[in-house]
Design a protein around this nucleic acid. Structure first.
Length: 287
DNA sequence: AAGAGGCCCTGATAGC
DNA sequence: TGCTATCAGGGCCTCT
């Protein structure tokens, strides 16, 4: 689930909770993630003090002293839960997929701090951890990825040049992390709707104005989603924690069959599958 | 070498 | 009720 806005919301709460704290111990319950958790993971993280939690694209970056880092990618179903020992019944929810209550199954890793635990849960196992041991490796790690939508590098020149002679359709480019980093399947559809651009239009056929609209709407929609706490598209029950509300503002995602929400448009929202992913768009106003 | 498609995995839901 | 099929926020790998 988690696209850039949801990962940012997780980052904010995680940073607040673990900044300047030390990991006392790491317990691995299940090493099988997208990439197997290495055998020395626990010993490497033991007694490490967290400087801060930052983010690039959909990656959380835990900063330790001495240029050590741990990347966390949540994949499709990864969630991070904070379990407070002093209040064992109270959970700080950073989940967008599951019930806020700590799931019993699929806890892969537990990070034990002085008086609380951080738990990584991931039913589908598409997420992963990655240890990075110096600044240069951290820079190189993201070198092949495109700029974030918010970056000044994601501008008209960049996009127009990138799209020259490109036959791939625009929806697939928004999902292509080498072109732009952090957009996923929900926001790609929403951005193209806001830009009035048909998702299946070939990138090289887009004019300057359409490119500009896509750029501006990418920045605007992701920022708005962050302000709304991200999108929570699966059930939340009995929670007063970090629940996103941007799903209430979806204009096309999961809206197939509905009337187009753009005033003066009489179109219907349709769903089409490309590259194994659903795409939602208005048949009338997205040309 | 760009682009399309398969695949990793579990769980929720729909349909019979 | 219980089965089977389909779909889900991502991204890596292979094939053409």
């Amino acid at each position: 689930m988690p696209e850039l806005p949801e990962v940012e919301i997780v980052r904010q709460s995680l940073h607040k909770k673990i900044e300047k704290k030390s990991i006392q111990k790491v317990i691995i319950r299940n090493r099988n993630l997208r990439f197997k958790i290495p055998g020395d993971f626990e010993s490497f993280l033991k007694d490490k003090k967290i400087i801060k939690v930052s983010r690039f694209s959909k990656y959380l970056i835990i900063h330790f002293q001495n240029e050590d880092y741990c990347l966390i990618h949540l994949g499709m179903s990864g969630t991070i839960h904070i379990l407070d020992k002093k209040n064992p019944l109270k959970f700080t929810n950073t989940s967008f997929y599951h019930s806020p209550f700590l799931p019993k199954k699929h806890n892969h890793a537990e990070f034990i701090f002085n008086n609380f635990k951080v738990i990584y849960n991931d039913p589908r196992r598409f997420g992963f951890f990655e240890i990075i041991k110096n600044n240069r490796d951290l820079e190189n790690r993201f070198k092949l990825m495109g700029p974030e939508p918010f970056s000044d590098k994601f501008n008209l020149n960049y996009v127009v040049n990138y799209f020259k002679n490109k036959n791939k359709d625009i929806k697939n480019f928004l999902l292509d992390q080498r072109f732009v980093s952090g957009i996923g399947n929900i926001y790609a559809s929403e951005i193209l709707f806001a830009s009035r651009v048909n998702p299946f239009k070939k990138a090289k056929r887009l004019n300057k104005n359409e490119c500009l609209n896509i750029i501006l709407n990418s920045k605007k929609i992701l920022k708005h989603a962050i302000n709304k706490g991200g999108s929570s598209i699966r059930d939340f029950k009995n929670i007063t924690g970090d629940k996103g509300t941007f799903q209430k503002e979806f204009r096309v995602y999961q809206q197939d069959g509905a009337n187009c929400k753009r005033s003066n448009c009489k179109g219907i929202i349709k769903k089409k599958i490309t590259s194994n992913r659903s795409t939602f768009f208005c048949v009338s106003c997205q040309k």
